[in-house]
Structure formats: structure tokens, C-alpha cells
Design a protein around this nucleic acid. Structure first.
Ligand SMILES: Nc1ncnc2c1ncn2[C@@H]1O[C@H](COP(=O)(O)OP(=O)(O)OP(=O)(O)O)[C@@H](O)[C@H]1O
Length: 694
DNA sequence: TGCCACGCTGTTTTT
DNA sequence: CAGCGTGGCA
């Protein structure tokens, strides 16, 4: 077979397609290459693409895998293959099968913000302060629980929680009842519910087992027990399961990933073939030595060999700056220099950091020097209010039981249905619900109440005729666009008309934004329309996409238009998102205690030792992204909430052997030091001279 | 209903 | 510090 080489161990793994297979190896040893070649090999053996499932953990790495494969076999050969994240796979199954659990068809996927709202309303029902939700870290715990594949009562009783086990279970149950009544699921349900369906309805599972025959999981060290359960049920007795991973790169323990799953794979599958890859093909030997030295400080590791194959390469550079702004300036300068003088492309650089907000300074400086760049993930487009509002419209149109979205848009743009009216409608709904319960009918939801009130003027006193007609018009509006969207051949033009009809522009002006802001916000709305158009034109399925498909795509954060030309831009991303990727030149930034390792990840962990080791693995991941050149940068101070804080250099820097490092200090205090040194030198010279002359 | 001013809050990491 | 939301006032 043509294409790039494989070493004998890789080839062995590629050719082993039946039965369980574990590829256990360090960073940059060609694990992902095995997966892509294995798929290529399977296709060449006549295995249908629709039988193959290749799963990864982040959208970025799933996309990367897809790109590599497209280059090898072309897009056409990949048709029907599942090449996605676990969550996207779960969503795909749920989309077809969720009815069996008593949900209605287009369900909503709640994002974490909506989830918070839901908890808040539960707390209000319990006569508790809704602000307490976050303090109790309820969403986080519930998620952790759902990722553990344990019954929630057992889970709650098996650990110490910030709240009592009873209270946790109460909220847990109410939360899920609410979700169900909204006809909505949360992220974890995308994994959990398919698993439940398979357990309760073997005939459905059978269908999927016949369809999916070969499984490959990249970054398997980050699997959580619930995902593993889903995987095990799908894999069935054929056990054509290939998992690939590296315990040293397990960085999602905090959200329930269990590295024990990969460590015990051999126990679960005694007949598994094990392949170890011991050559690193990615990084220069200096970079690899640094990585190995850092990770050697961890205690809980599985023995593993990783030898360099590349050149010794440049020294690593350690750069100290005064503050984050200067840190960013130095980085941007270096990039500019290397683009101009070393003929490197912007896309050859990655700037990695621990937390999203750190991207800000770098964005600013790169913009100043007009260096094309792209921030991966982070808070952005979909968090904007106007975008959320518009999406809420689409959600209600797709799933009118989505009360959270409904309440969001009921009075946006303003139609005179304020808080007071909502209360009254709520009370009315309560009555309707009791009647329905008494007569054994389906429980009405908020939208039903609106329909009733809107079509029967005078039904409730206290809601004046003007508001009744506003409610009527709102209901009509939703129904009209529901029809339009389901009838239209293309969705994007409908959305465009809808935006116009809602007259957002007027609303934005009323909200007091100046002309530029209004234009920017309108632009965001049309950007969403563009995304929808793009989404439609890239749709590969035979049945055309519906609103639901678009919404699901957005919820999964998997929109793929943001990587339109990643090659031409400097990539800014968190260390977590960098896993599985590689770049010729990498900047590991913010290397200060408190930032990295992150203060809270350790202080808020129930096992600080383990948390620190996870941070260190994150550092190992960061270092091993670099192929040719690694810069480590830090600053002496950092502004936080307007205050300047002093920061110590990260302990991870001390773990890198000194002889691999070139140090460069740009900080003011260092400059001052140097000046002082020079002054003293000058003084002693002067004294000596004086002595001589005397 | 509309405008401004004050004051509060925010920084893990992802799907 | 900055961005947002609330609330007071006209
Ligand atoms: N046999 C080989 N010969 C030469 N280069 C190889 C070989 N196998 C892989 N590579 C190259 O090495 C680099 C790392 O490979 P790959 O991304 O598959 O590693 P990985 O083990 O998945 O890394 P990570 O654990 O960091 O995700 C890639 O640039 C790949 O093209």
C-alpha cells in the first residue's frame, strides 16, 4: 500500500482487524496513524464504510482524524462511516430511538446555561436560594454521577458531597423529571440514554450491532465508565474493538474519565492483542527529553518506553516577561520574525494555555501585528445574547416543550408579555395540569397554556386584551415558522425572513446599543444564517437536514466551518484541546504556579496529589505537541480583577533539565537587576582605577 | 418607556 | 478592569 511508512509494530496493528486490540504507547508514537491506516486497510479489504465506527473525544481531534483520512482515501470512501465524538454518536442513536423512552421526536439538547436555569427553578420550588446551585456545584456533581455509570443513590452514598446524599438524590430526580417534561436531554444523556435503550430493548441493540461491526477509539485513556458501558454493549460478542491510548495523557479525570479502563483492558478482554509503539516520530530529541523528564515526576504510571527518532533539534527557550501583555508581545514578535525571516507559515504555530481567558492578551498582540490567527473553542459566538435568542426561537420551533427557550423568547423582542403575565400564565398552566392529571390526560406544557389563552380572550382576568392578542400572535408566529421550516427545501432563507420579521434591529436600538453595536449584532444574526446555509450545503445524508440537525450540531459544538483554513493561521487553544494535534512550533504560555498547575484544580480536588499529577500530564501533553521548537513562557505578574499579582514560575519548569533550556528574561525587574549589576561593575572599576592612580 | 449610572462579578479544563 | 444587568429617575 502506498502512502507514508509504518513500522513493523504499527503494521501488525493495522493488519489485525478482528478481535480486541489495545495499542498502548506514548505521545507521538504513531497511534493515530495506526487508526487511519487501519481504516484504509479495512476499506481495501472490502469492509463497508458504514460498518466502521471511529470515535474520539474532542471535536478538534475527531476532525483531525477525518482530515487525515480524507487525504488518504478521499471523502467519498468515508460516506456512512461514523467518525465523530462519543457524544455525536450518542446523539445519532438517540435521534432515531429516543421515542422508545417516551420522549417526543425532536428533543432539545440543553446546554450548561439552560441546565443551570433548570436547577435554579428546582431550588426555587424547594424554597431555596437559586444562587446556591452553583455553590453546591450541583450541575457538576450530577454530571460526574452520570459519567460514573452508577445508580445515583449508590454514587451519592459512596463519597462525601458538599450536600447531603438525600438532598442530592432529591435534586437529581427532580432535575431529570424536569428534563423529561421539557422533552430535553443534557450532554451526559447523549451517552447514558442510548445505553439505557440498549439495556431495556435488546432488539434495538441488535439492530445497531448488525450495523456497526468495527470500532476504534482514539485517546481511550479518557473514557468514562458510562461511555465504556455503551461501547461494550455495541461491541457485542464479535469484539472487533481497537482502542488506542496513553495513560500519561489522561487529562479528563476531573470529569469522570477513568484511566483504569485502559489499564484493565487486558482483564476485560483476556484475548486482546497488545501492541506497544516505542518510537516517537514527532518531536526533536530535546523536546522529547524534556517531556520525559517532566512526566517522570509522576508516581502512578505504567512502564513505557519512548525513544526519539528525530534530530536533536534546537534548544528549548524559556522566556520570562513582566506581565501577560509583555508575554504576549514577545510571543507575537517571535512569530512575526519567524514568518518573515524563517519562511514559516502562521499555521505552523500554536499558542497553548491552561484556561480560555488567557487567549485574550495573545489575540490582542497578534491583531496588532496583523498576524492571522484563530482561537479554537473558547467563549464566543454562541454565547452572545442575540445569537442565543435566535437559537431559542429555533429550539421552540423544533420542540415547543422546551420551556426554557420559550421563556427566553416570549418577551424578546418585547411584545408586552412581562414577568407578571408569565406568573399568571404559570398559575393557569398549573390548573390545566391538575385537570389533566385528574382526567388522566397528557400533561400540558407552557406552550399549550399560551395556545389556550391566546385563542380565548378573557380567559384569565388580569391579562388585558392587548396582551392576549400578543400571545396569540406569538403562538401564530411559532406555528407559521414551524410549517415554513418543514416545508421549505432550504432552511437558511426561511431563517433570514424570520430574522427580518422579528425586527431585531429595532429591538437592538431600543436596548441602547450605538449604531456600530447594532450593526455588529445584526451581523451575528446573519452569520448564523450563513452557518445554516453552509451546514445545509455540506450535508451528506440522503434525507435533507432539519432544524433539529442544525441545532444538535451547534449544541455539540461541532460546527465545522471554523476550520476553513486552519493552515494559514496561528492556532490559539487550551492544552486540553491540543491533545492529539501537532505543530512545528509551540508556545507553552502562562507557565506560572497558580495558573499552571492551576490553583483551583488542586485546592478544590478531593485528592490534591492526583490532581497535581493530572496537571503534570497536561504539561506532558503540551510539550509533546511540538515537533521542532518549543517555547515556554511565563510572566512575573498578572492582572486579575484589576489587581496585579506576583506569580512564581511553574514548578514544571524546574522539572525540565537545565541543559535543554535557553533562558531569556524580558521582565522589568530583571532589567533593573541588570542595570544594578552594571552599575556595581562600573563602581568597582572606578574604585580600582582610583586605587591605581593613587 | 427610555436613558443613564452605579455596582457587582468574573477565571478552570469539555461535550 | 471591563462588561453587564439592575434599578432609579424622568
Ligand atoms: N512509522 C512512521 N514513520 C514516520 N513517521 C511516522 C510514523 N508513524 C507516525 N508518524 C508521524 O509521527 C507523528 C505522530 O503520529 P500520531 O499523531 O499518529 O501519534 P500519536 O501516537 O497519535 O500521538 P499522540 O499520542 O500525541 O496523539 C505524525 O506526524 C505522524 O505522521
Amino acid at each position: 500500500m502506498s502512502g507514508p511508512r509504518l513500522n513493523p509494530h504499527q503494521a501488525e496493528a493495522v493488519n489485525h482487524i478482528d478481535g480486541p486490540l489495545l495499542i498502548f504507547a506514548g505521545a507521538g508514537s504513531g497511534k493515530t496513524r495506526v487508526i487511519t491506516h487501519r481504516i484504509q486497510y479495512m476499506l481495501s479489504k472490502g469492509i463497508a464504510s458504514s460498518c466502521i465506527v471511529a470515535v474520539s473525544f474532542t471535536n478538534k481531534s475527531a476532525r483531525e482524524m477525518k482530515h487525515r483520512l480524507q487525504k488518504m482515501v478521499g471523502s467519498k470512501a468515508l460516506r456512512g462511516m461514523v467518525l465523530s465524538t462519543f457524544h455525536a454518536l450518542g446523539n445519532r442513536i438517540l435521534q432515531k430511538e429516543i421515542r422508545i423512552l417516551g420522549y417526543r421526536d425532536p428533543f432539545s439538547i440543553l446546554d450548561s446555561d439552560d441546565g443551570l436555569q433548570l436547577y435554579a427553578s428546582i431550588y426555587r420550588d424547594l424554597k431555596l436560594d437559586p444562587d446556591q446551585v452553583k455553590e453546591d456545584s450541583m450541575p457538576f456533581m450530577v454530571s460526574l454521577c452520570k459519567n460514573s455509570n452508577m445508580h445515583h443513590e449508590d454514587w451519592a452514598n459512596s463519597r462525601s458531597l458538599p450536600v447531603s446524599a438525600n438532598f442530592f438524590c432529591d435534586v437529581f430526580e427532580r432535575y431529570h423529571a424536569s428534563l423529561k417534561s421539557l422533552n430535553a436531554v443534557d450532554f451526559d444523556d447523549l451517552i447514558l440514554l442510548p445505553s439505557r435503550i440498549f439495556k431495556e430493548h435488546p432488539e434495538v441493540l441488535e439492530k445497531y450491532r448488525r450495523r456497526f461491526r468495527y470500532f476504534m477509539i482514539d485517546e481511550f485513556q479518557d473514557t468514562n465508565p458510562t461511555q465504556y458501558e455503551l461501547l461494550l454493549s455495541l461491541v457485542g460478542d464479535e469484539k472487533n474493538l481497537c482502542v488506542v491510548g496513553d495513560d500519561d495523557q489522561s487529562i479528563y479525570g476531573w470529569r469522570g474519565a477513568d484511566v483504569g479502563i485502559i489499564q484493565n483492558f487486558q482483564t476485560d478482554f483476556p484475548q486482546a492483542k497488545i501492541v506497544r509503539l516505542e518510537h516517537n516520530y514527532r518531536s526533536s530529541s530535546r523536546i522529547l527529553s524534556a517531556a520525559n523528564a517532566v512526566i517522570a515526576n509522576n508516581s502512578k504510571r505504567v512502564q513505557k518506553i519512548l525513544r526519539a527518532t528525530g534530530e536533536e533539534g534546537e534548544q528549548l527557550s524559556l522566556i520570562m516577561a513582566e506581565d501577560e501583555e509583555q508575554e504576549a508581545m514577545v510571543v507575537a514578535d517571535i512569530i512575526q520574525n519567524r514568518i518573515i525571516h524563517a519562511a514559516q507559515n502562521p499555521g505552523d504555530f500554536a499558542i497553548l494555555y491552561r484556561t480560555n481567558f488567557q487567549s485574550r492578551a495573545f489575540e490582542q498582540e497578534l491583531r496588532k501585528l496583523q498576524i492571522p490567527h484563530h482561537v479554537v473553542g473558547g467563549y464566543k459566538f454562541f454565547d452572545r445574547k442575540e445569537v442565543k435568542d435566535l437559537l431559542a426561537y429555533l429550539r421552540v420551533i423544533a420542540n415547543r416543550s422546551d420551556e426554557i427557550s420559550l421563556l427566553r423568547i416570549l418577551n424578546r423582542p418585547r411584545r408586552g408579555i412581562g414577568e407578571g403575565s408569565v406568573q399568571k400564565i404559570g398559575a393557569f398552566l398549573q390548573n390545566m395540569a391538575e385537570e389533566a392529571d385528574a382526567s388522566g390526560m397528557r400533561r400540558p406544557d407552557f406552550f399549550h397554556a399560551l395556545e389556550r389563552i391566546g385563542s380565548t380572550p378573557g380567559l384569565i382576568q388580569g391579562i388585558p386584551a392587548k396582551q392576549v392578542s400578543a400571545i396569540y400572535e406569538f403562538v401564530e408566529f411559532i406555528e407559521k415558522y414551524k410549517k415554513e421550516f418543514s416545508r421549505a427545501r432550504k432552511l437558511a432563507p426561511v431563517l433570514s425572513t424570520m430574522i427580518q420579521e422579528l425586527n431585531w434591529e429595532h429591538e437592538f436600538m431600543r436596548e441602547g446599543s450605538d449604531e456600530n453595536a447594532v450593526r455588529a449584532r445584526m451581523l451575528n444574526l446573519s452569520e448564523l444564517t450563513n452557518m445554516l446555509a453552509f451546514f445545509e450545503s455540506n450535508w451528506e445524508d440522503s434525507t435533507p437536514p432539519g432544524l433539529f440537525d442544525f441545532l444538535a450540531r451547534i449544541s455539540l459544538q461541532a460546527s465545522d466551518e471554523d476550520d476553513d483554513n486552519p493552515r494559514g493561521r496561528v492556532q490559539l487553544l487550551t492544552l486540553h484541546l491540543s491533545k492529539g494535534l501537532e505543530f512545528p512550533t509551540v508556545f507553552l504560555t502562562g507557565m506560572m504556579e497558580g495558573i499552571f498547575p492551576g490553583e483551583r484544580s488542586i485546592s478544590e480536588s478531593e485528592n490534591p496529589e492526583a490532581a497535581l499529577e493530572e496537571e503534570r500530564r497536561l504539561c506532558y501533553v503540551g510539550i509533546t505537541r511540538a515537533m521542532k521548537k518549543l517555547f515556554l513562557t511565563a510572566s512575573r505578574t498578572r492582572r486579575r480583577f484589576g489587581e496585579t499579582e506576583e506569580k512564581e514560575p511553574s514548578r514544571f519548569l524546574d522539572e525540565i533539565p537545565e541543559e535543554l533550556l535557553d533562558r531569556e528574561d524580558h521582565s522589568v525587574s530583571q532589567m533593573a537587576e541588570r542595570k544594578k549589576d552594571e552599575m556595581e561593575e562600573w563602581l568597582t572599576d572606578l574604585r580600582n582605577n582610583l586605587k591605581v592612580s593613587i
